[in-house]
Computed example of a mutant assay.
Amino acid sequence: MEWNMRELVYYAAVSLDGHLASPDGAFDAFSLEGDHMADLARFADAIPTAGADHLGIAQDRSCFDTVLMGWNTYAVGLGVPGGESPYRHLRQIVFSRNHTGAGENLTVTDDDPVDVVRSLKDEAGSSIWLCGGGNLATQLADEIDRIVFKRHPIVFGGGIPAFAPNAYSPRRFDLVDTKAFTSGVEVVEYARSR
């Protein structure tokens, strides 16, 4: 994958109706079996560190060196071994106005996400992964350079949307690549129109 600059990349699994999770916040309906799983190697840096270690997948930070999460996305892993620092091979920045904390390569901050992203883009390094959730994606909509969605053949009918409802002007993205798998999963990649 050749990206020209340090980009903010929104990389996430979504349902056909554009949700990151079901109405009860669950995301376990996304299939972890099938031929689409081979595509994970392309985004090895987006696999939790413990999972990649277990699977013998190398993570060299060539794709992403930083991950951004809202508190609710981060909190999914709390209570799971290694969940306090799920992507310890990356610099992890968790945005929260109500929580504090730190861990290995992890910072919880109440700084403005736009200011943080603009500062990160000025640094040298690999791309910045926007892991989720929808509220954070909405706050960063003008900073997102690329969207890569793993669209699963399920409909939640509600839940956590990829972008939270907000009154903003439409943003245009151009289709860069699409890969369809027999599992029914489709990986679609868009770049911001310039």
Rank of each mutant, 00 (worst) to 15 (best):
L68D: 11
D142P: 00
W71K: 02
N105Q: 12
V155D: 02
H36S: 03
E2A: 12
L20N: 08
R88Y: 08
A21K: 03
K179W: 06
S183E: 04
A137S: 12
V80E: 13
R42Q: 11
V108P: 02
V76E: 07
L32T: 14
E33S: 14
A38E: 15
S193D: 10
D45Q: 05
N166V: 10
R194M: 06
D115S: 15
D53L: 13
E33H: 11
Q139M: 07
V108Y: 03
P48K: 01
R194Y: 03
L55Q: 15
D60C: 02
F30W: 02
R6E: 06
W71S: 01
D45F: 09
L90V: 09
A13R: 02
D142I: 02
C63E: 12
S169N: 12
G134R: 12
S169K: 13
V187Y: 11
S183F: 00
I57N: 04
I128P: 13
I93S: 05
I93G: 07
R97F: 01
L140Q: 04
C131V: 14
D112P: 08
T66H: 09
G34L: 09
A191V: 13
V176D: 10
W71V: 00
L175V: 09
H99M: 07
R146C: 14
Y87P: 09
V176T: 10
S169G: 08
R6N: 07
K121L: 03
G157D: 08
E2Q: 14
E2C: 03
A58D: 13
N98Q: 14
R192N: 06
M1N: 11
A167V: 09
I128F: 05
G159L: 02
R171C: 01
L175M: 12
R192L: 08
A44K: 11
V80C: 01
F163E: 04
G134K: 12
G77A: 15
A26Q: 11
E104I: 10
D65R: 10
R61H: 11
A46T: 10
E189C: 15
V188Y: 00
D115Q: 15
P81W: 01
D53R: 15
D122M: 14
S22Q: 06
V67C: 12
A58N: 10
N98G: 10
A124C: 02
V80Y: 10
C63T: 15
T178P: 00
G101Q: 04
L175K: 14
D17A: 08
